[in-house]
Design a protein around this nucleic acid. Structure first.
Lengths: 255, 255
DNA sequence: ACTCTTGTTCCCCTACAGCGAACGTGTTTC
DNA sequence: GAAACACGTTCGCTGTAGGGGAACAAGAGT
């Protein structure tokens, strides 16, 4: 039915569903014909999926175009709230952003990828909203590297096997040996550094949040390379960052 | 395959998928066996769905138990951000909560139901997070009634046909004629009132946000019945509420 | 060492997901 | 203003893959 060849054992209809969602997002809403053409499916098949989704709130038909529905928002809020580190880190991240005047982030790992769970920015601005809720490879940002550095070795290997080390900029670490060496340095130093490895002109430092001997996520401070590159600035930010992660760990300990 | 009898034309596998998500949420994470038993499906079927979901980030396997995945958070953030009223109303809602010291809400309608898109609370507190991202019937809260009052008559009828007028408390309006009369009053008065119709001891007032001649959502102020019941308080809150909706409408007009 | 319970894999079978065509409705075009 | 078009929706048919059951592996508890 679906075009999956040797996936192991997955449900093709589910994959079609996910593909429709993806298309709805990419096209910012679309009609049945457009979706069917884009996915190489029959109009009737797409229609049946959409009807099912609408019935459950996962899609809406607004003025003749289908859109991603707010049931996803409901499920998404639940998925985020499930992380107690989110509740423990919210205030510390806000404080960190206010103190430093830079952007501050909470990052967690799931299925070997990094997700920005929460963000705050000293001088307001909407740019935070564009990042929260997006995936990254763990190796391209400071928070992700901080997490990797404190994950069991075999899990790190599994993650690298599954997702590889694709480059985002010319500074991205793309070599396993190099990455492993850097993870050692991160463990010694206590925090990770990102020098334009994800986005040009953006530097960041990130530190892990640990609880019960396992990494639960990471906090990061990010800002313009020009400002963060100075050594004394890095030391100051690192100091404040580690204080913030301490706060989160305390919050986690006391629920 | 799925047990849907006379649904019209929906995809059974999709419904199974949604049912699994629902179960994962209700049980706060679960194993294959538990899910299969709860849904009356074979373990192998549930497993196949879960594998597909994990592959796409819609589920995670943490320590042997499956959970709702953060891909839902990604899609949910997108679904929320799609509403420009969200961006237009965020600050006004915060201001409204700060000014009044009560809880302030942004509510939108989708598929005939009300969704709390954003909330703010004067004196902090996490209670807001439990409400944001949840559905309500339109007739049980002030924001929903304000929306209903400004929807075309035929659409109101369709919504009532589809969702009915179930009671949440003994104060809920459950009669169509009564509701229609109240919608008239709301249009005259400019705002809607909720007197413990959704939750005992909680009163609220809500006003519509309109743009291009159509309702785009509603703001509401809610608080303890004891405080809000006084007539002078209602007048004061209504004044501030309507100022806030004006602000949102201005923000919408200027993008 | 034994049992019990779990997640996972394998394979068969038939229900249904996907298709194509037909239908209805609204919009554009000349 | 009617004809051509494009769209969403509905309707049966058909072959494939979704679901079931059993077997397997891997821990956990006794």
């Amino acid at each position: 039915m679906a075009r999956n060849g040797t996936d192991g054992a997955t449900v093709g209809s589910d994959e079609t569903l996910f593909a429709i969602i993806e298309q709805l997002r990419e096209r910012d809403g679309a009609g049945v014909t457009e979706l069917a053409a884009g996915l190489g499916l029959a109009k009737s098949s797409v229609h049946k999926h959409l009807r099912t989704m609408v019935e459950h709130g996962y899609a809406v038909n607004r003025d003749g175009t289908y859109h991603v529905g707010l049931e996803f928002f409901r499920a998404g809020e639940y998925a985020r709230d499930r992380y107690d580190i989110y509740h423990a880190a919210k205030d510390p991240v806000d404080d960190l952003a206010a103190e430093t005047g830079e952007m501050a982030w909470l990052i967690v790992e799931e299925n070997g990828r990094a997700m920005y769970l929460y963000g705050s920015r000293g001088d307001a601005g909407v740019s935070v909203e564009a990042i929260v809720g997006t995936w990254r490879h763990l190796h391209v940002n400071s928070g992700g590297k901080a997490i990797l550095a404190h994950l069991p070795d075999d899990e790190v290997e599994r993650i690298l096997d599954a997702h590889g080390l694709p480059a985002r900029t010319e500074n991205t670490v793309t070599d396993r040996g190099e990455l492993r060496a850097e993870l050692d340095r991160i463990r010694e130093r206590g925090y990770a550094v990102n020098r334009s490895e994800d986005l040009h002109g953006i530097h960041a430092i990130g530190a892990p949040v640990r609880h019960d001997g396992a990494v639960r996520g990471a906090l990061a401070v990010a800002g313009a390379a020009r400002r963060l590159a100075r050594d004394d600035r890095e030391a100051d930010l690192a100091e404040r960052l580690l204080t913030a992660t301490d706060d989160v760990e305390v919050n986690l300990a006391y629920q």
